[in-house]
Design a protein around this nucleic acid. Sequence first.
RNA 1: CGGGCUGUGGCUCAGCUUGGUAGAGCGCCUGGUUCGGGACCAGGAGGCCGUGGGUUCAAAUCCCACCAGCCCGACCA
Length: 556
Amino acid sequence: MTQGDVNPATTDYLDSSSRLNIAQNRPWLGTEPPYNVGPFYETTIFPMSTLASTKTAISPRRDEDFPEWYQQVIRAAELAEPSDVRGCMVIRPWGYGIWENMQRQLDAMFRATGHRNAYFPLFIPLSYFAKEAEHVEGFAKECAVVTHTRLELEADGRLKPGSPLSEPLVVRPTSETIIGASYAKWVQSYRDLPILLNQWANVVRWEMRPRLFLRTTEFLWQEGHTVHETEEQARAEATLILGIYERFAREHLALPVFTGTKSESEKFPGAVQTLTLEAMVQDRKAIQAGTSHFLGQNFAKASGIQFQNREGKQEFGWTTSWGMTTRMVGTVVMMHSDDDGLVLPPRIAPTQIVILPITPKEDTRVKVLEACDALALELRGKRFADAPLEVEVDRRDLGGGVKNWEWIKKGVPLRLEIGPRDLEKNSAAVSRRDQPVKAKESMKIDEFAARAPEILASIQDSLHARAKNFRDANTQVISSKKDFYDFFTPKNSAKPEIHGGFALAHWNGSREVEEQIKNDLKVTIRVIPVDDSAEPGQCIFTGEPSARRVIWAKSY
RNA sequence: CGGGCUGUGGCUCAGCUUGGUAGAGCGCCUGGUUCGGGACCAGGAGGCCGUGGGUUCAAAUCCCACCAGCCCGACCA
């Protein structure tokens, strides 16, 4: 959107009684509708004092019990909660808001590279699904299968499934086969190519051990599916998407990632090559943050995607598929949060700035609230990155610092306290979520209004820098089997401390070695770098020749 | 799907061994006192003790089955 466009965030179209209703019942919106867009500010560093905080809002702390800490952060931030349906979660507004921001931003990147959205069925006929052998083998065990329609009331008063389906339907764990069936109809000539589609959808994978966001039975994602005329074009597409994912992770989510290919044993079932992004979260384990697959002609053959090429001969299409999921929300949580709760990169925070009116005395109350509303209004007219600022005034009548702590635990990037004494000096107390929670800086309100976008940019940058430092500090070049085993063995085996990280080590390329290491240490090859200066060496496990070092880690 | 543990107000749990009218803390609601701050005082709401069956005069408590969750193994975005 450019300046002068209609801003969808305004409420100009409402009549006065509707607006009064909003002012009375949705006080966080303020009493005035937000206005139009303002200028964009360049990034600069924003120095701030650091104070140590003692008591933590989340217990246990990260170093005490990382998995439990993760759950508590999600609960305290009201991102999501387990539902009564096994393995499924309820995504609450704050968590869904993060996902919506991810969707909007990633979708724009797909669109800008020529992709368009479409939607394909949730149900896949079993016969479609069965067409690609490796694919079936990879997903069979985690498929939910619909076998009946209609419920019938039994004599005992219970509802039971009624009519069996002639052909069972698989609830999509991924959509290669059902989309392939459509592509087979659409593609006849090389002139029909490429097809570049994406869909935003839910999928179901019946996992044994679910964890909020990281591994749930039903999850949300986007899946892109493309068909190309040549192998070269399809490989280029898979690489293009990997690049988009990497940039999205880095610039939008402040996640530093390693990119490259998966080993044979870790790649997508049915793919020729799987490209991946691997991030390191704060317990030093790896998490796969997105994948892009070159599928060769495997799925084209299975689905019958054929076209007449430029020489007039029938040829199978070259396909790709690629996806990113709600797991990203969990990854962001584990990457940036601290012992006081969630920490959100400003670009995906549903609310970027929260203004907390301090109203100790009745006689100054109205003035303070007016000043807060006026500032919110002004801020909403400004932009950060590609969108208007999201600002909330928390006018709830809650005592103590309860409100402040709620926002800390929700990870809002900037908190602003404005009270009567600030107002006399026309200033506000500014707290950044990337700083210790007690840290405050007094700043003129006008100055803050002018600099808010640049401060948000600075937080975005500092989160990325912090994450990158952490990752680099825990990534080691390892040159002997003993060092490797030491690196991945906790000192306290009864209650393992946070240990290990990413190990860069030479490997002979064999599946047997991978298997052995996985059995011994639960460590796997996360990614085989592609852009790295591939210096040859010797496999640290067998002494055999190795083309390059690969990245090993324990993983989610 | 195998092995171990656990199901009691929204949350964390006590009570169960030795059956006898359901408890605490936190949270929530109301009132008050505080308040540039996760405060305090008083009052209050909220539970057929996972579900079903059995034993018994009587079951949160004993027995059986089932269901769900957690941890450990095989799988995964």
